[in-house]
C-alpha cells in the first residue's frame, strides 16, 4: 500500500507540474490572496495562496481554529472571502450569483465529521435524496444510487437506517451521497473525526479509491495516523496562513518542509496538540 501510494504520489506530483505549465485549466482549485474575516473580527484566513491540481489528493492539517474548515467552506461557497479570488473548476466562486450556488454544489461533494445523514431515511433513500432534490430523472436515480453504494461497499445494506450502521458505514453512506452527482471535487472536513482507527483507515482507503477514479480529494484533518499512512500532499495551516506544503508529507512537518519525503515518519504524539489527536476522540 505504502509503496503503491508513494508511486502514485510522485506521478501526481509530476502530473501537477505538467498541468501547471500547460495553463489556467491545470488547477481545479485556486486561491489567490484570500483573506477571510468573520463579522466578530476573527481572521480565519490571511492572504492565502493555494493551487490544487486536477485529480490530486491533498491533506489540510493544523490545529483547531487554524482555518481548515474555513478554507473548505470557501470552496463550496458556504462562505465568501473578505478579499481575494477563489476559483473552483474555472469558476470564480467568490463572484457567482446566489442562484448559481446550487450548480457549484452539484460539482463539489462535501463530507463532514458528523455524517449529516437523515435518520428517518434508509441508506438508499439518503443517497437518492441528493439526486431527487436536484431534479434528477427517476431512471438516473435507479442507475446511480446502486453504483455509488457499490463503490463504497454498502450494496448489501441499502434498506438499513443510519442508526443500524457503524460509524464507518455511516460515513461511507455520506461519501456515497456526496459522490452520487459525480462531482469533480470531494471535500472532507474531519471525515475520520468520529471514527476509531480501523474505521478511519477503511474510510481513507475508500477516499483513496475515489481519488484513483479521477476525483480531486481534499481532506481537512488532525488525525496524524491517516495522514502519515497515506503519504500525500500535506498543507499545514497556522493562523490562517500556509506554513508548510509538501508532496508525500507527514502530519508533523519538520520546519519548512526541509525534512520532507523519504524520511521515515516517527509518530511524535506529543507534538502540537500535546497528545495524539486520535486518542482524544
Amino acid at each position: 500500500m505504502s509503496l503503491r501510494s508513494r508511486a502514485e504520489n510522485s506521478c501526481n506530483a509530476i502530473a501537477r507540474a505538467c498541468f501547471r505549465a500547460s495553463g489556467p485549466n491545470a488547477d481545479v482549485i485556486s486561491l489567490r490572496g484570500v483573506t477571510l474575516v468573520y463579522p466578530n473580527g476573527t481572521r480565519a484566513l490571511d492572504g492565502l495562496n493555494l493551487e490544487v491540481a486536477k485529480g490530486s489528493f491533498v491533506f489540510l492539517v493544523g490545529g483547531t481554529g487554524t482555518g481548515k474548515s474555513s478554507l473548505l467552506r470557501l470552496l463550496y461557497r458556504e462562505q465568501r472571502p473578505t478579499h481575494g479570488e477563489v476559483t473552483v473548476d474555472n469558476v470564480r466562486v467568490d463572484r457567482i450569483k446566489r442562484s448559481r450556488v446550487p450548480h457549484l454544489r452539484r460539482n463539489v461533494g462535501v463530507v463532514f465529521q458528523d455524517f449529516k445523514l437523515l435518520s428517518d431515511k434508509t441508506v438508499w433513500e439518503n443517497v437518492a435524496f441528493a439526486l431527487q432534490v436536484t431534479g434528477a430523472q427517476t431512471k438516473d436515480v435507479i442507475r446511480q444510487v446502486p453504483r455509488v453504494l457499490d463503490l463504497v461497499g454498502l450494496a448489501h445494506k441499502t434498506r438499513m437506517f443510519p442508526s443500524e450502521l457503524s460509524g464507518g458505514e455511516q460515513q461511507r453512506v455520506a461519501i456515497a451521497r456526496a459522490l452520487v452527482n459525480n462531482p469533480k471535487i470531494l471535500l472532507c472536513d474531519e471525515p475520520t473525526g468520529n471514527l476509531d482507527p480501523a474505521n478511519a483507515n477503511e474510510v481513507m482507503d475508500l477516499l483513496h479509491r475515489i481519488n484513483l477514479k479521477g476525483t480531486t480529494v481534499l481532506v481537512a484533518t488532525h488525525n496524524a495516523l491517516v495522514v502519515d499512512r497515506m503519504r500525500r500532499r500535506v498543507i499545514r495551516l497556522e493562523d490562517g496562513t500556509i506554513v508548510a506544503d509538501e508532496e508525500r508529507g507527514f502530519y508533523h512537518l519538520n520546519g519548512n518542509g526541509a525534512n520532507a519525503a523519504g524520511t521515515p515518519a516517527p509518530l511524535r504524539g506529543s507534538h502540537g496538540l500535546g497528545t495524539n489527536p486520535l486518542l482524544l476522540e
Partner: peptide, 17 residues
Amino acid sequence: RREIAIMQLVGASRLYI
C-alpha cells in the same frame, strides 16, 4: 432544518427547497 441543510449542500435549487 437538517433536510434543508442537506438539500442546500447537495445543490438543490432555491425554488425546489
